[in-house]
Design a protein around this nucleic acid. Sequence first.
DNA 1: CATGTACCTGACTGTTTTGTCAGGTACATG
DNA 2: CATGTACCTGACAAAACAGTCAGGTACATG
Lengths: 156, 156
Amino acid sequence: MKITAQEEYGLRCIIQLAKQKDGEPLMVRDIADREGLSIAYVEKILWTLSRSGIIESVRGPKGGYRLTRPCSEIFIGEVMRALGGIPSSEEICGQFTGNHETCVHHGACDLEPVWASITDFVNSVFDRIPLSQLLQGKLEVKMVQLTPKSQANLVG
Amino acid sequence: MKITAQEEYGLRCIIQLAKQKDGEPLMVRDIADREGLSIAYVEKILWTLSRSGIIESVRGPKGGYRLTRPCSEIFIGEVMRALGGIPSSEEICGQFTGNHETCVHHGACDLEPVWASITDFVNSVFDRIPLSQLLQGKLEVKMVQLTPKSQANLVG
DNA sequence: CATGTACCTGACTGTTTTGTCAGGTACATG
DNA sequence: CATGTACCTGACAAAACAGTCAGGTACATG
């Protein structure tokens, strides 16, 4: 179970945008400096995020990137999914080329419920944390609660 | 956030061993057949698992691999960690080469608490599920409860 | 004690992910 | 309307991961 580089760096970049006052665009060069990444790489990551509509670009002098919404209305889950994100249990099972007869056709997959519970939970946590919360020192989420689906799987 | 092939296939292989009656060793060839994987690949995965002491090999004719303990005493978390596993938040932060001055020295990392909460939870779920539970049709865990550490991070 | 079975292990290849490069396009300003 | 700034984008290079291959070692059996 791995956090990808896109996710880590993508979140860091968008946090830099969230720290910006007003709607002032922030230059790629500044983000790259602050996070210790190359300009080219930051450009690539921001381009990915802008395709999903979470951020937008301002061209020309004094240009840069900025959030399309206030940072209190942008949740980490949305950002993670834009960056490649958390696969669903169906995607995990479909991704691996093993014995599909047992798993898919006979409905005898032992692992699907495990992946379903984990990915469901991760999504539910990420969808509760707005960017604004990351800017404060302390991370807070009102309540940790599983979705009905993962409860059915996990809680006996 | 990705499940690696090692994790998926490693779990599948060890589930096959758990299904075996008594302490009978199961041949690599049989596991490979049942899961639709190559023999060479299954050998590699099982070798990894045997290094961690979860399974052991029996050489010669009628040999194979078997669990070192009853399947009710082997938890998924242990298996996942042997397969490369869930990194800690420290490992995630150390893995990426960005701006360490901000993150490490100034203690101003915005993401560490997020990774800590997620990895903590994933570990706590995996450490509650013994292999024996995967063999039954329904996955059940007594209670979903966060560790004190991740509660402090997530619950305001 | 020879033989066959089946595990053991390092080296190798192919594919995906990560990160770089180079040249192009759009906009603000004077 | 020329110029410089800064985003845009596809193609490429390098590193990590997935999966294969080949030859070796240990054990049970007759």
